[in-house]
Amino acid sequence: MWSHSASRFLLVGALSYLFDLGVLVVLHGLLGVPLAVATTLAFGSTLLLNFGLNRAFAFRSTGLAGPAFVRYLALVVVNYVLTLLMVTGFAALGVSYVVAKTGATAVNAVLNYVAYRWWVFRA
């Protein structure tokens, strides 16, 4: 099951999502941090965990980490904008921020797998 990068990517994604969502719920749901700020902090706190696990485990990259991290950060900017727009936009329409975050994560997952496989972690 773990022989294909897609299955490993999904596992890393699930772990990253749970971590990210947990931070979001604690910050916004329990501590009352404004949603946009909590979303930003949760998203940012997951960066290094996600990069490291995807590089080492999901894509088993042997390329230089520095250039891959620069490409990863460029993709993170795209992910951040999409996440912030989707979470705050759908929440403003009355959708639960947890549901909105889940939708944003699904959209980003599809985009990220293609970008990681063919651009970020290329050998």
Rank of each mutant, 00 (worst) to 15 (best):
T39D: 11
G29V: 06
G22V: 05
A104C: 06
V87K: 03
A38N: 05
G13M: 13
L75F: 14
G44C: 07
T62M: 14
V26H: 02
T40N: 03
R117M: 00
D20Y: 09
L48D: 05
A109L: 12
A58E: 09
G89I: 04
R55H: 15
A58V: 06
G66E: 09
L21H: 08
V23S: 11
L35H: 01
T46P: 08
L85P: 00
N50E: 00
Y113F: 13
Y80L: 11
L82H: 02
A92Y: 04
V76E: 10
A6E: 08
S7T: 11
Y17Q: 00
R8D: 09
Y113E: 03
V26R: 02
G103P: 09
V81S: 09
V70P: 04
L73W: 01
G13D: 09
V81G: 14
V76A: 11
F90G: 06
S45A: 12
L111C: 06
F69A: 09
Y97E: 10
N112G: 11
A42I: 05
L85T: 01
A74N: 12
F59D: 04
G89K: 02
T40V: 00
A56R: 15
T83Q: 05
V98H: 07
L21Q: 11
S5Y: 12
W118D: 01
V70T: 08
Y97K: 02
R8Q: 13
L18N: 12
G52C: 07
Y116I: 00
L10K: 07
A6F: 10
R55L: 14
R117D: 04
F43C: 00
L73E: 02
T88M: 02
V107L: 15
Y116W: 01
F51G: 04
V77W: 08
V107M: 11
S5R: 06
G13A: 09
L21G: 01
Y72E: 14
G13C: 10
L82I: 14
A42K: 03
G13S: 13
A92V: 02
Y97G: 08
P34K: 00
T40R: 03
V23P: 13
H28V: 09
F9M: 08
L85S: 04
V114D: 05
L85V: 06
L84A: 12
F9Q: 13
G66A: 15
G44S: 10
N54D: 11
T62V: 15
